[in-house]
Amino acid sequence: MFVLFCPHCGEKREEEEFGYGGEAFIPRPATPEALDDEAWGDYLFMRKNPKGWHWEMWSHNTGCRKFFVVKRNTATNAIAGSWTLAEGRKAYDAEGGST
């Protein structure tokens, strides 16, 4: 029951307004047929699931219905920031693209 900042609405809101959208920055392969089963399986199923900082998506379900990016610590629920998808990608890349 934490609070998230929606970068689209510009407001902090209770968690119950949001829906979890899974790990962020798992782009869909441009040509799925070119991938072997293992690589496609990785895209489908393999997730980081860290104890600690995690880049993830949330959607503002009962608000603007927009997806956005949150960096959250899964052990403490501390939140380092919220970004739009594009801005989040930049922040993620600036950190070296890993958690």
């Binding site: 829906g19 959208g21 782009p27 959607s59 379900n61 219905r65 927009k66 997806f67 998808l85």
Partner: peptide
């Protein structure tokens, strides 16, 4: 609805 929005917004 959420599924469609997610694909549209993220991909």
């Amino acid at each position: 609805m959420t599924w469609l929005e997610k694909w549209h917004q993220t991909e």
